[in-house]
Design a protein around this nucleic acid. Sequence first.
DNA 1: CGATTGGTGTACCGTACGGTACGGTTCGGC
DNA 2: GCCGAACCGTACCGTACGGTACACCAATCG
Lengths: 219, 219
Amino acid sequence: MPQAAATAADEIVTPRQGEVLDAVLALLLEGRDGLTMTAVARRASCSKETLYKWFGDRDGLLTATVRWQASKVRAGNWDRQRLDADALAESLEAFAANWLTVISSKTSVALNRVAVAHAASGRSDLGRIVLENGRFAIGERLKPLLEAAREAGLIGFDDTETAFRTFFGLVGRDVQVRLLLGDAMVPSKAEIAADAARATRQFLTLFGAGRSAPRTRSN
Amino acid sequence: MPQAAATAADEIVTPRQGEVLDAVLALLLEGRDGLTMTAVARRASCSKETLYKWFGDRDGLLTATVRWQASKVRAGNWDRQRLDADALAESLEAFAANWLTVISSKTSVALNRVAVAHAASGRSDLGRIVLENGRFAIGERLKPLLEAAREAGLIGFDDTETAFRTFFGLVGRDVQVRLLLGDAMVPSKAEIAADAARATRQFLTLFGAGRSAPRTRSN
DNA sequence: CGATTGGTGTACCGTACGGTACGGTTCGGC
DNA sequence: GCCGAACCGTACCGTACGGTACACCAATCG
């Protein structure tokens, strides 16, 4: 057994380990790729030996960090009761705004960059883990809403996944790629709200049943 | 003058230099981050000293490679004459299909990954260059079409940029991020064609003037 | 033919970083 | 008060890689 450390899914993170992972996050969004094991150890006031004991190796530490961050941002479920057109639009907007806020956060950008770099070098599942806790997680959380709305006759579509992906595209557009590539286009709270509203309007225009939302023009 | 090599925008690439840059590309989409200066030199059958003489340093080589690749894929301008609804849809579909083909190519993915990793470590403009030759370049090439279509009364919008970004979102959706993160979801030619058609339909539904395209359902 | 230029191949240097070893300290249990 | 476990700090090792120096070769030009 080389290292059966914190790479499994069932591990529990002790408070002290949480501190270490927070140090990784801090170091990470400090940018400048100063993310060396030595730097982490110093920042977290722990020894490298402990790092290796707890997390196995550098990849293990990164993986644990991604999971740690993911465990902190579970958010954005919807109400469940009384789903009318207004409640649907509201929920969609909330989802969109939440998603935009997450992907434009420095933490998300930094973590995604690490995962992308990791995916480039082939080994390990960091990319998959980020995907599962990001893109796919929000998909799974949004789909019930979409399907409930379809049950309620508010929107129409054949394939939930396809509908979701359209919504995803309308919300995110070019934001994530631009941020990953270093474009400093972090949207303000107001812009996020406006974009969430626009994306929702457009989505309802495309998929709305019955009285279609007023044809949206431009933004 | 430390190195006035191939980092400027006005440099011309000699055939031999092109061979070297092709070697970089080959090595790049071979993945496994084997992209070391020594590997490039060996692959291109040239000396490291020549590499440094021509491209300054590793970043210069990468930058030149990105530009080199960009210079090879300029594509997808539109017809210009007789713009009716059908021609517009056709042009939009062509743009979309071309764009999807590009971003799902192994080369694009590899190059974008390098640029993202680069953007993470702060220094240098690799990310900006990729952005300019990708996302922004296609924007500038599509906008004239959108505006001509507006002149012709075929579609309506206030802000060209916003309209383009919506189209961009409808076309790309989650594809690029998923590919960057290692998701093996490379679309087939048929899927690309279908997605381009869908995105175009949806875009025209949202922005089309006059006889709106038939309300699209699902894909 | 000799000299200059521009390139190849290889050996080399410095350093940064992942990973390990180890001495010293704190702390809980007996 | 002693023992062992856990952990900190630091020194250390090996290696990979960016960058440089140098010996050698081929071609071009006078």
